[in-house]
Amino acid sequence: MATTKRRRLSPGIWFLAPFCLFFLLFFVLPIGYALYQSLFRTERTGLYGELGTHQVFAGFGNYAKVFAEGAFVQSVLRVLGYAVVQVPVMIVLATVLALLLDAASARGVRFFRSAFFLPYGVPGVIASILWGFLYTPGISPLVSIGGHLGLTPDFLGPNTVLWSIANIVTWQFAGYNMLVIIAQLKAVPGDLMEASRIDGANAWQAIWHIKLPLIRPAIVLATVFTIIGSLQLFTEPLVLQPLTANVTSTYTPNIAAYADAFSNNNYNYAAAEAVLLALIAAILSFGFLRLVGGRRRG
């Protein structure tokens, strides 16, 4: 008994081992290290700690400070506000594009599919630089066209720059999410569509009653990606930072943690911020999954 069991198990373990190893090494271990670091703080004597430096256990002191200082909380609220607008826009746009390309009457499907997907191939930094030029007064054609029409668009203003960032992100990822949804649309059985046509369903009815329910998993997936992406907003605001005074060093949770770790060199505090952000992302993602999952069961 025992020998057969072992024989059956061992190949599986070998297949799993590489994944488990890297998962432990590059996922579990760093998270554990961040958790550990977030529980300590440094005490120093002298102006530069030259008379003594000690690492002391702080309990949840760093977490308390994150909440007390408020800048991080504000950054979380900012990205949540951003997500409330950005997630629906992104998902609706991706779904509409996917359905358009899937429509029976669509022309030039291959061209448009590539064209919509193309921005995803542009690295985030490059995309942000590119849009940065389009946002900067004095060199942006958009701003000068606006000027000729009597408008004074301010893409980098205190109340607008967040939506300029949302625009970059939508431009970049709508095509990607569209592709995820298209893949699922391709899996909609042809006989189902044929049956609906025979039963007299028009295109709208087919979308509403057949396609949308069947691509629901893909939409859920894209939504979770977008929620997580919103919370982790980093590249776009960081690249726009030199162009505007309105992207601060605590603009998004990730930028705040980055600044605290690497510019302020306060790893313990940054670790607490990172752990909190991971918690929030987990709560929101699993919360959303539970929400849609629950409805399905109901």
């Binding site: 102006l47 530069y48 700690g49 203003g157 205190p158 005074a245 309105n246 601060t248 060093s249 605590t250 600044a259 510019s263 302020n264 060199n265």
Partner: peptide, 20 residues
């Protein structure tokens, strides 16, 4: 200061806020 980098960050945020 040993924390000059953060002070400059704080100033960036607070001065931008005042100007806005």
């Amino acid at each position: 200061l040993p924390t000059t980098a953060s002070t400059l960050d704080h100033l960036n945020a607070s001065i931008a806020g005042a100007v806005n």
